[in-house]
Write a protein that binds this DNA or RNA. Sequence first.
DNA 1: TCAATAGTTCAACAACTATTGAACTATTTG
DNA 2: CAAATAGTTCAATAGTTGTTGAACTATTGA
Lengths: 99, 99
Amino acid sequence: MKELFQPNKDQLNLTTILCALGDPIRLNIVKQLSDMGEITCSGVGSVLPRPALSHHFKVLRESGIIHVRIEGKQRFLSIRYNDLEKRFPGLLETILKCV
Amino acid sequence: MKELFQPNKDQLNLTTILCALGDPIRLNIVKQLSDMGEITCSGVGSVLPRPALSHHFKVLRESGIIHVRIEGKQRFLSIRYNDLEKRFPGLLETILKCV
DNA sequence: TCAATAGTTCAACAACTATTGAACTATTTG
DNA sequence: CAAATAGTTCAATAGTTGTTGAACTATTGA
């Protein structure tokens, strides 16, 4: 069970987050997570091959936008709403409304 | 008096805008513009050499975040508040509050 | 234990981004 | 017209990002 780097909530950085969301594929992933709650990696709808998606998951995780919960052979992705909201109130909600 | 490309308000693209703001230098420029209204290029506080700043101005202008008004030998930069607000309500305000 | 499943990591590569000094354009002022 | 000013464009370069197939790791189930 490997450790995954995920910044804690006071390490969240605004430009890092905006940069992570400034990509159509990642913004779409976040939108899906926002609509559907937790999703497994393969549950994310995209035509991209796995490694490319894996790359985007990593960017989202390391920016602090998503949390990854490992359960068995699956990884469940979800948005870190509470942490984001505390650090950057209204940010994610406002951005997602614009999608 | 050369024409400058600036997208019109229905061409504004969310990921393009987030990407433009997902850079500390550009976010800082936008913050200054938000605090001080119109500023000339050389009025923007930064240690970067001119061509580097010029590059960032271009990214901000082409993403539709700023407007450039040429007057004499100076260029006045300002945020396109109305256009941004119409297309992406609350977006810029929320982001700038997070800075 | 072996095969299947879920996902990551690796290596290679192309495309893009940021930075720099030098050269350029346009405008104003003497 | 020449010099100064404000800013951009160019060319070179270094570094980053995104994509891909192949190889890998970890877990589950037969």
